[in-house]
């Protein structure tokens, strides 16, 4: 297995809505790490995650994710990362099964992989036939994670995954993240739930005004 960092940003600058949301970020994330990103609102956490997913262009410095140079090509990495942002990316009028099936078809996953993902996220059984619009926030989040699992992402980028969930839902999310890491994925979590996320993370990194302060 490669020992190269999964995420390797050096003096990376990213501009979002005309504002330098990342102002020279230098940061590495190694394989199987669970890294907690913390920082105040507007510190650049979401932009960092979106830059890792190849959604926000890095205009200066260097940025490599899973060996892909994001300065040259932001698209080739996308198939290998999974980003769960503030939104779930689900279709409200479709059922859980239809949502997960859509993603399975799009990425060419098998029926067995779809079933396993739904079982792992506990959205199988009766829940599978309920529309997304009828679900609680935690159930929606679990369904979004099932869609992420079915894609077999190597790098999970989670932006406030605990938001809107009750204690049980938060515990479930933590368990899912730990399982993903033990199955070989690398996870970067941006969270305001510092105490909870600290117990989960193998390392904590602080972002302030678009720059990194490593707290590990």
């Amino acid at each position: 297995m490669s020992t190269a960092p999964v995420v390797d940003f050096v003096d990376a600058v990213a501009v979002y809505n005309g504002y330098p949301a990342l102002a020279g970020v230098t940061m590495q994330v190694m394989r199987n790490e669970i890294v907690l990103l913390q920082g105040p609102n507007g510190a650049g956490k979401s932009t960092f995650l979106r830059a890792c997913a190849g959604l926000v262009p890095v205009v200066r410095g260097s940025a490599h994710v899973l060996g892909c140079d994001l300065v040259i090509d932001r698209e080739s990495v996308r198939e290998r990362v999974g980003l769960l942002g503030h939104q779930n990316g689900l279709f409200a009028d479709l059922t859980v099964m239809e949502n997960v099936s859509f993603w399975s078809t799009v990425v060419g996953a098998t029926t067995a992989e779809r079933g396993a993902a739904m079982q792992r996220m506990a959205v199988d059984g009766q829940l599978a036939n309920r529309r997304i619009s009828e679900l609680s926030a935690g159930q929606k989040r679990r369904c979004a994670l099932a869609c992420l699992v079915v894609r077999r992402a190597e790098l999970w980028l989670l932006d406030e995954p605990h938001a809107g969930l009750d204690a049980k839902g938060r515990d479930e999310i933590d368990l899912i993240i730990k399982e993903a890491a033990s199955a070989g994925a690398t996870v970067v979590v941006a969270s305001h739930e510092i105490e909870r996320a600290k117990n989960l993370a193998t390392r904590t990194v602080s972002l302030v005004a678009g720059q990194v302060r490593d707290l590990s």
Partner: peptide, 17 residues
Amino acid sequence: AVETYDGALDSLRVAGV
């Protein structure tokens, strides 16, 4: 509207579709 309501279009882009 179906694609942008819950960020599905973003998810499709991230998935490299």
